[in-house]
Structure formats: structure tokens, C-alpha cells
Design a protein around this nucleic acid. Structure first.
Lengths: 124, 124
DNA sequence: GCTTGACCTGGAGCGCGCTCCAGGTTGGAG
DNA sequence: CTCCAACCTGGAGCGCGCTCCAGGTCAAGC
């Protein structure tokens, strides 16, 4: 149920071992369990966090902000409002990003259509 | 109609002066005109290229690939197919990127909804 | 002609997010 | 008990895309 070796955690999360260590080093992942010998043991909870980090990373949130979010979560329930606000603000930025991407994608398609209208057989 | 000072080109393109110089230095923009004294004069054609670079940059194309595209364009009409293929390949990547962004955005919204369902007055 | 702000060059530096390395330790299989 | 693959640490290095700087030149307005 819980207790994954580093390589397994890497496989499941899609992050590299180095990235997992890095995320712990900078305080994104805190208090990762260890064996008596000092080797990491990741829990389902850790994997849940990693999934969130992947979501935030893929949507372009800077690490500093993820760090802040994680710290708030560690600080307890009274930070719920601030955490929610942080996510909402981020969501707005993501919407803008999607809009820009969409618009530029359309320009790109238009450029491609221009090439396709050129005399001569269309490539492929 | 054509012939813009660097600051004007920066204003119109939205790139910084340093970035314009950088783009020329690495061969994205080639053969930018100069005054007798050596100062750059940007043409409408240059601005057109910059608009394209912005589109490609905003959609995540690495500079090396933009360089390649620009070089192909300089090489003449016989590179049309390759240029078109390059843009099409890029468009596919952009579609993937949009799909990922959309999916992760939905996860984000779900997380926000989770916060909003929490007991207590929803923030703001 | 002088001033002054915009511009020039080559090259160093930066911020981000990892990624790699050396040198040493751990722990499960046989 | 031995082996060896997986793991540990601290710290250096990297790739990208700019950004900044020093020290000098240009050119438009007075």
C-alpha cells in the first residue's frame, strides 16, 4: 500500500531520481521517510504531492510558488484560504496561457495553409 | 512605410533591444540593414520575421529550430517542402502541448473545487 | 559646434530547473 | 559472508534564452 523505493517512486511519478532528491533538497517534498540506513522510502502521500507538482509544473508554475504552496499546506488548516487563492491566481494565468497558445496555434496553421496553397504538389 | 529605428522595432515587435541584437547575433535575423554609421534599420520584412518568431517562441519552439527554419527560408524556394514539414511537425507538438495543458488545467480546477467545498465560507 | 540620448560591440553573467559526478554506504540475493 | 546494484551526500556543471555591462560611436536638436 505504501512505502516505495526511490526507483519505484521515480517510475510512478515520472520524475527522475535526481529530481526527486532535488525537490526534497529545496523543500518541496519535506520529511520523506528513511530506512535505518538512510535510504528514502516514499509514501502514497508523497506520490500525491508529486502528482500535484507535476500538474503545477506542466501548467508553468515556478518552483518558488510550489514551494510556497507546500509550505502553507504544512503550516496547517488556517492557510486554506491562501492556498486556494494561490491556485485560483495560477488558474487565471493558465487560462491566459491557453488563450495565447490557441491564438498562436491558429497563426501557425494559417502559415501552414499558406505553404499548402503554393503551386506544386503539396508535400507528402 | 519601412525603416524603423531599433527602439521602434522593439516597441512594435515586443522584443527588447537586447533580444533583437541577440537574434541577429545568433543568425535568426540576418542581414539587418544599417545606416552609414552602423546603426540598425529594421524593415517591415524584419518585423514580419519577428512576428513569426514570436508565434513560434510562444508555442515553445526552441531557438535552434527557428534558426533552421530561417536558414531554409534564406536558402530559397526549393526548401519549401522542408519548411512546411517543419511547421507541421511543430504544430503536432503544439497540439500535444495544448492537450496536456487542458488536462492539467482540469486537475487544477478540480483541486480548487475541492477547496471550495471545504466547510466554512469560501474565500472571497 | 556641442550636447545628449540612442545606439554600437564583445563578452560576461544570470535565473531556472534540473543533471551529473565522485566517492562512499546499504541491503537484498545467492 | 560476499557481492553488487541501488542508494546516499555535497557540490559542480549545464542548456536555454536572454540580460547586463563597459567603453565607445552616432546623429538630431539647439
Amino acid at each position: 500500500m505504501s512505502g516505495y523505493a526511490p526507483s519505484e517512486a521515480a517510475r510512478r511519478s515520472g520524475f527522475s531520481l535526481d529530481t526527486l532528491r532535488y525537490y526534497e533538497k529545496i523543500g518541496l517534498l519535506a520529511d520523506v521517510e528513511r530506512t535505518a540506513g538512510g535510504q528514502r522510502v516514499f509514501t502514497d502521500d508523497d506520490l500525491g504531492w508529486l502528482e500535484l507538482f507535476r500538474c503545477l509544473r506542466d501548467t508553468g508554475m515556478p518552483i518558488a510558488q510550489m514551494r510556497r504552496y507546500a509550505q502553507l499546506a504544512r503550516d496547517g488548516d488556517h492557510t486554506v484560504d491562501e492556498r486556494c487563492a494561490l491556485l485560483r491566481t495560477h488558474a487565471v494565468r493558465v487560462e491566459e496561457q491557453m488563450g495565447l497558445l490557441q491564438r498562436q496555434y491558429e497563426h501557425l496553421r494559417e502559415k501552414i495553409r499558406y505553404y499548402e496553397r503554393l503551386p506544386g504538389p503539396p508535400p507528402t
